[in-house]
Amino acid sequence: MDLTKDYKIIGMTNSELQTLINSWNFEVEFSEAESQFLNITVKPENLHQLGLQLKSNKETSFDFLFCVTGMDWGTDLGVVYHLESTTHRHQIVVKVKTSDRENPTFDSVCDIWYTAEFHEMEVFDFFGIKFNNHPNLKRLFMPLDWVGYPLRKDYVDEVNMVIK
């Protein structure tokens, strides 16, 4: 294997990625503000389709999900996926959000990137975000009988927390 050749591969630029993903018609929003990555915000119903396309397309080939983050933006709950291609070495961020705080639900992507299975368990544990088609969605770090989702901004715990 010629490593020097591999290191020269930098993949697609952010604007090339944007042009390509725009041509797929997933109704996504693009942003590069305050970020080293190209951020795309996708509607929850298109998330799984977009994920499949991002991974299977030969030009993008995002086969490595290196970070899954649960987020509480105050009003919206959401999940942020950081993706990388191990062949092209380009990276991208996919965001998905919902204003439903009672029953926030997204499609699981653990059938596309297997690593998402544990990451989604963690997001469920701390934010109460549910994932459709997840094989084993349960609490990961908190005790199984814990009530509430402690990393939500509106979380209250009068027993354990000293509020400042």
């Binding site: 402690p150 715990d157 354990n160 927390m161 000293v162 509020i163 400042k164």
Partner: peptide, 10 residues
């Protein structure tokens, strides 16, 4: 971790 934490023993 004294303030605003649900998990730490004070």
């Amino acid at each position: 971790f004294y303030y605003n934490t649900y998990s730490v023993v004070k």
